[in-house]
């Protein structure tokens, strides 16, 4: 069973009299363990597609199954639950909380899960993820004490700490120099292996 199964997926935005058909009927299966690059120019529909895969938006037509469950017609609260438990996000701008340590940033998704993950377990899992991304010696650093590449590594650890079904990375190297970009892409490959 593919982890993602998309059938005839479409998204149309209406802005007054104008209809924008951002995604126009996409079929795609993605298996667990694949490292898939979705590429296209601005306005090609890739970001809209990513928003739907990330349960940040709903399609206007078609179906989207995540781990065998059709999530294309869920309510906002149900989608939020899916996002928190099944999907990890990495963004171009890192989106770390300022004045919050690397460790606390990585613990956040576990905190949102409520009392099911207790403090000691949160800390253990966050430390393990920071170690996995090569930042075991930076756990108490604030974001402004870290380089861009290190901040993105913290964001990757945060995205993976919940052991999500899928990791979505939206232009994750957009704010990094070419050397650091390669390091981050190598890290993705290593973590995906």
């Amino acid at each position: 069973m593919p982890v993602i199964a998309v059938r005839d997926l479409a998204k149309t935005y209406s802005t007054g009299a104008v209809e924008v058909r951002a995604v126009r009927g996409v079929n795609l299966d993605i298996e667990a363990g694949e490292f898939v690059a979705v590429v296209g120019p601005s306005g090609s529909g890739k970001s809209t597609f990513m928003h739907i895969l990330g349960c940040l938006d709903r399609p206007t037509r078609g179906s989207y199954e995540l781990e065998g469950r059709d999530v294309s017609r869920l309510t906002r609260d149900q989608l939020a639950d899916i996002r928190n438990t099944k999907i990890g996000f990495v963004f171009q701008g890192f989106n770390l909380l300022a004045r919050t340590s690397a460790l606390e940033n990585v613990e956040l998704p576990l905190l949102y899960r409520g009392p099911s993950v207790r403090g000691a377990e949160r800390r253990r899992r966050a430390l393990a993820m920071l170690d996995a991304v090569g930042l075991a010696d930076r756990v108490d650093h604030m974001p402004n004490q870290l380089s861009g590449g290190q901040q993105q590594r913290v964001a990757i650890a945060r995205a993976l700490v919940n052991d999500p079904a899928i990791l979505l990375a939206d232009e994750p190297t957009g704010n990094l120099d070419s050397t650091t970009s390669r390091e981050v892409l190598d890290l993705f490959r290593q973590l995906n292996a």
């Binding site: 490292f35 690059a37 979705v38 990375a169 993705f188």
Partner: peptide, 20 residues
């Protein structure tokens, strides 16, 4: 793992490339 990018050089790091 799903990587979204406008850059074909970055996309080449994936094992599979889906172009929109």
């Amino acid at each position: 793992m799903i990587l979204i990018t406008h850059d074909h050089e970055i996309a080449a790091h994936g094992n599979r490339i889906v172009q929109f």
